[in-house]
């Protein structure tokens, strides 16, 4: 895999987090009814950053869950992922506005699986989707409510997201496969 170009650096990511925090508050008219769920792995630190940003702006306390979607994938006969991360949603989601967070939106299949998983925990009032990068090529009728950056790609490219919490640096780049 060869890096072609850097798309976002650490400052860019920070600005995106700040902008999306405000968009979420604007759309939901405050932070009282929202909870965050990050999709393992990199959706979790992203969700945590947005959540903490909103908390510091509005001195409120917002819940954060983690979701691993391995058990809900639809490509089971092609490949079952053998490494499974922990799912942790230790609170009631019924009636809540869930802010679902992932790093890259691509085919939409991960989000489909995540929505199925969430429904097994209860019936939320709404699910809204945050992604850092939307790279196109959707295979399902799914779109994001909050997008960090729209990044048109070709199918032989790969979007690599690195975050401090998981990879010791904040950077998004586009690579050749």
């Amino acid at each position: 895999m060869r890096e072609k170009a850097t798309v976002l650096n650490s400052d860019d990511i920070e600005r995106i987090i700040k902008r999306i925090s405000h968009e979420i508050i604007e759309r939901n008219k405050g932070s009282e009814n929202i909870i965050f769920i990050g999709i393992q792995k990199r959706g979790v630190p992203l969700a945590k950053r947005i959540k903490e940003n909103i908390e510091s702006l509005y001195s409120s306390e917002i819940k954060l869950g983690k979701l691993d979607i391995s058990f809900y994938r639809d490509d089971i006969n092609e490949k079952i992922k053998s490494d499974v991360n922990i799912t942790e949603i230790p609170f009631e989601i019924k009636g809540k506005d869930i802010i679902l967070v992932d790093d890259v939106l691509f085919t939409g299949r991960t989000i489909r699986a995540a929505m199925d998983a969430i429904m097994d925990f209860g019936r939320p009032k709404s699910i809204q989707l945050v992604v850092l990068i939307d790279r196109g090529h959707r295979e399902l009728p799914i779109r994001a409510d909050y997008v960090g950056k729209n990044l048109p790609t070709s199918l032989n490219e790969f979007v690599e997201v690195k975050l401090n919490e998981t990879d010791n640096e904040d950077k998004v780049s586009i690579c050749w496969i």
Partner: peptide, 22 residues
């Protein structure tokens, strides 16, 4: 470590995931 993720399913209200459906 992986087993923890499966133990978590058993603590849910709906104790079933579609992982091995079919």
């Amino acid at each position: 470590i992986q087993t923890e993720s499966f133990a978590e399913i058993l603590k849910r209200d709906i104790k079933k995931v579609p992982a091995l459906r079919g």
